[in-house]
Amino acid sequence: MRRGRTILLNVLAIGILGLLLSLAEAYCNGYQTQILNLIAINIILALSLNLIYGFTGLFSLGHAGFMAIGAYVCSILIMTPDQKDMLFLLQPAYDWVQNAQAPFFAAVLAGGAVAAIFGAIVGIPLLRLGDDYLGIATLGFAEIIRVVANNIPRLTNGALGFKGIPAYADLWWNFGWALVTLYVIVRLLQSNTGNVLKAIRDNEIAAKAMGVDVFRYKLLSFTVGSFFAGIGGALLASLLTTIDPKMFLFTLTFNVLMIVVAGGLGSLTGSVLAGIGITVLLEWLRVVENPVNLLGFSLPGIPGMRMVVFSLALIVIILFRREGLMGMRELTWRSLAGVFSREKA
């Protein structure tokens, strides 16, 4: 019965989300819609990094690299050959790049798949490293992807990047993929395989003694995480319609990391809530980068100020609430019901 009720509530929640999205579609202006779209994509990215870092304990800083792979693969597949003709000004695209085409859904999936393949390829050597080295090595990987993107003009159009990528990624696609991501990661973590991942995070030596092939499960988590990072990157490319190597700097990984830490390492609902909160906050903080007039004093806009405020916020979180918003707890229907019944009592 419990299980039936949970499924019913989940279906209901998805229905309400659908309703809200159609309302948003009808009444939100372009800017507001953009923020909603970014929320969905940030949730995808945060969930995938939380799987890797929060649930498996792998301190990876390579998310921007996997996003770049997803973004480029998807963009190449959804731009028409004519578009690519116009775009590759410096050098013509490789024939297979020129002719490759796929519908949006398949293109996003391909973006995720290629990112996952790269995840596995770099994971095989890197996941044998200790924790600190893993962070540095994955950071290096993301940087290599960026440099490669800059230097293979016939594949990526070099520093110019892509413009006019078809804007297919609307609210429905983005939130649809966010739900898929949530579903897959929740099911993975609820299965006994999820217990194994958490065991590796908690005590790797004990996990080995329990017969866990630690390397294999780290690779699984890293590959699934890379897959969804690629999906997020693919959607982002189609949402923003332009990409170039500069977009995939470390700050992009940092944003995602911020969401994961703020929401709670090891809490999926934390990532969802922080994904919403921090995306809104980041937009709202744009104010501090514009010139403002405060009671007759005019303050000049300082570019980059947003990230300063942002970084300070991260430091404050680490100092005063290291476990983030949710710690390792999850918001479930049952815990929600508990809150309401307690309030009534």
């Binding site: 217990n195 958490k198 065991a199 995070r201 908690d202 005590n203 030596i205 004990a206 996990a207 003694a209 090891g266 390792m328």
Partner: peptide
Amino acid sequence: NIRLFNNE
């Protein structure tokens, strides 16, 4: 020295 999975 006991090694449990403490958060589980």
